[in-house]
């Protein structure tokens, strides 16, 4: 199962959040992920790493607010791509899945 060091996970979470926040149209991430970043690692369900037979599986649950004037679906797609890329840079062999939920339009 989870046999990866915690600090790696924390740094991965940090990279994932920064990638998502940098996506055009993203206003902010919900406290869930931010709380995780600030060390509330108990909230780790937002980023789940699972070791499997043929590598590692990473699932990211992303909750974000979108700026009005941006199409919500397009922003979720861009954020997904950015997050996938951020994970691939650090864990090239991992397979990545991302759930994106728009929690507000601001």
């Amino acid at each position: 199962m989870t046999d990866v060091p915690q600090d790696t996970t924390a740094r991965l979470g940090d990279a994932v959040a920064r990638a998502a926040e940098a996506t055009p149209g993203v206003a902010f991430l919900r406290p869930d992920l931010t709380g995780f970043l600030r060390g509330a690692a108990a909230r780790g369900t937002r980023l789940r790493r699972t070791a499997t037979a043929d590598g590692e599986q990473v699932h990211v649950d992303l909750r974000l607010a979108v700026h009005r004037g941006h199409r919500a679906l397009d922003v979720t797609r861009a954020a997904r791509t950015a997050v996938e890329r951020a994970v691939a840079e650090r864990l090239p062999d991992a397979s990545v899945s991302v759930t994106v939920t728009v929690t507000a339009l601001v």
Partner: peptide, 24 residues
């Protein structure tokens, strides 16, 4: 926020909460 409502294609994993969509 209400239920999460699907965005995009059936096989996508993108959602929006009902209150945000309703406001729109």
């Amino acid at each position: 926020p209400g239920a999460a409502v699907p965005l995009g294609e059936p096989e996508e994993d993108a959602w929006i909460v009902e209150t945000a969509a309703a406001r729109t």
